[in-house]
Design a protein around this nucleic acid. Structure first.
Lengths: 342, 342
DNA sequence: TTTATTTACGCAATCGTTCCCGGTTTTTTG
DNA sequence: CAAAAAACCGGGAACGATTGCGTAAATAAA
């Protein structure tokens, strides 16, 4: 099933010109006479000529495409990010190649090799939950390959980074719970390896301390896969509820963590917020429609995607390396029923 | 910021061979002696040689990438579809270029031009709500360009099509409402131009007729943007509720239609299902957590993406054109609280 | 009129890879 | 031992576009 395209050669042949003349005419070079230009332009319009981007890529040694690696597309936060990425990339004439790590380090490495072999011009990545070793990224980065981290960043690599103020998000949410009179606030956290987990836990601990509470490490449960598997969330909450002094509120620090928490409570007939309060990081569009309406920390995902892409394309197209930026976006706190003290 | 890659020429120079020999050695040609092969393989392994896909594309006149056009990535149904697409495409060595129409015909045409100019090997598309004119697709199709439609198909074009049994989905849902004792069942439908809208309304009408109800066209409201805008849903439901004989149940035929319906009821303090029952097409993962738990018709989105991609790649790689298939996948009905008769 | 300068175009190399033709050797066959 | 046949490898064109360089004709300057 071939699909023969019209080339510059066809135009040249039809008009009795050389390919160079046609090429120059199309690029409006001063070396070409107005009449010739007109002839070429009209004819290529007529036969609907489109330059072959592959040939251009080969010549210019750039593909005008950027790679994205995220854990999961079917996740509100990341699909909103991709939305933002796509909006900028499209405007600037780049296309976007998406790969999913499914929170697996192995797949992340594979994806990276795949994307690198597809000669992308740059990479946008939010690392997987499992990722501890950074060699796959470091080796690329050392060659001067443009990489921008978003959300889940890797501190040891000097590149652009776009994140949300996770510390503040968790701090505000925790403070809200404390001020509302909850005494035992547990944290349902993601993978320990992730930057966001550390930052969010940091905010949680600081809020407790600022309010004169002591931080109890047994009140923190980690889920390696960020709540992607219901079972890991179930195990974590089971553990929390079996403590001698079980929590009366939970702060969940990821989308799937939050929703699977809700699912757990529904399954076990635990009332929210009467039996236990809940607030979580989430970018779902309908947390207000849940039962009860969910208090959330929301991240400006779309903007995050946009900014990351702008930084990446800026770096790709820069002649000489600039300083790397670390953009920190504000989280938004939405207080609803699930964290109300009855 | 260039990023110099190692080429076959570098290997040839280093080993004192010609590029043709290296190329053949790498492809394990019988014309090359075992020793030479070994030398080449070892050296290219050492310097981490990767063939340049751009050069290959130019030579083979295929890019090994496929285009996707959907209305919105940040929509569970479509992100699940893309998930399925990506899983197959990745396995078969294709990458995927995604574009969003945002339910706009104009953007759909623009996206198509963009993708076509990026020399994709094939297209997966679910047309926008606004799309009535098919010339942009027809002209490509007539040139023999591989296109597969999924979900929202265009009947007049002879290609592979992958859909869900929308008629049955709507029929079952409507039947369930009737059998549960609801008397005035309204349909909140998407754009009239879409195949899925027609099919779903067909199922709705047939179910009413089979149960001896007469079909009343005033009970059907269309939303051109498929519920993407809250306002259009609000207007539609306002209209339904102001009827002399207002509905006691609604069947909503798209994801955003369903959730915006919920949002409307919540906003107006209308109780579901006491005041009005609701069942809708939705692929959200947490319709069971909504208040009330939502009865839905769920589509096998992931499988739909997989099958579409298999058919497309099959067509791309086929020597001679095969017959076009029309795959119809079964919908799943989940009955929950929102459609219970109190 | 002669020389210098534009003007307007073609030639050919280039990007990285494959592959069709050759062309040497070496080995096999009659 | 000569001829045929493998075995092994290099040269160069091709894919589609850009671009530096060369050059003929036309025009301008001397």
């Amino acid at each position: 099933m071939k699909f023969e395209a019209v080339t510059i050669k066809d135009i040249a042949k039809a008009l009795g010109l050389s390919t160079s003349t046609v090429s120059r005419a199309l690029r409006d070079s001063y070396e070409i006479s107005p009449e010739t230009k007109k002839r070429v332009l009209e004819y290529s319009e007529k036969i609907n000529y489109r330059p072959n981007p592959i040939a251009l890529s080969l010549k210019e040694k750039r593909s005008r495409s950027i790679g994205i690696i995220v854990c999961e597309i079917a996740n509100s936060f990341f699909s909103q990010i991709i939305n933002g990425i796509e909006s900028i990339a499209y405007d600037k004439g780049y296309n976007v190649i998406i790969a999913q790590s499914h929170e697996s380090y192995e797949r992340e490495v594979l994806n990276l090799q795949y994307l690198a072999s597809r000669s992308i011009d740059g990479l946008l990545i939010s690392v997987s939950s499992e990722t501890q070793e950074m060699d796959h990224l470091r080796s690329l980065h050392e060659k001067g390959f443009p990489i921008v981290f978003f959300d889940r960043v890797v501190d040891e690599l000097q590149t652009h980074k776009v994140i949300v103020d996770n510390f503040k998000g968790a701090y505000d949410a925790s403070l809200h719970l404390v001020k509302n009179g909850f005494r035992n606030i547990a944290a349902l956290a993601g993978s320990e390896y992730l930057s966001i987990t550390k930052e969010r836990l940091g905010g949680y601990v600081k809020a407790l301390e600022d309010m004169g509470r002591h931080y109890d490490s047994t009140m923190v449960q980690h889920c390696l896969h960020g709540g992607m598997l219901y079972e890991e969330v179930e195990t974590a909450i089971d553990h929390l509820l079996q403590l001698p002094n079980p929590p009366d509120a939970i702060i969940a620090s990821a989308d799937k963590l939050t929703t699977n928490c809700m699912r757990y409570f529904k399954k076990k007939n635990i009332r929210v917020p009467e039996d236990i309060a809940l607030i979580g990081f989430s970018n779902l569009d309908l947390t207000d429609l849940l039962s009860p309406a969910l208090s959330v920390v929301r991240q400006p995902a779309f903007e995050m995607g946009q900014i990351s892409t702008e930084l990446l394309i800026q770096q790709i197209e820069a002649k000489r390396p600039r300083d790397f930026e670390r953009r920190i976006l504000p989280p938004q706190l939405f207080i609803r029923e699930s964290s109300e003290k009855i």
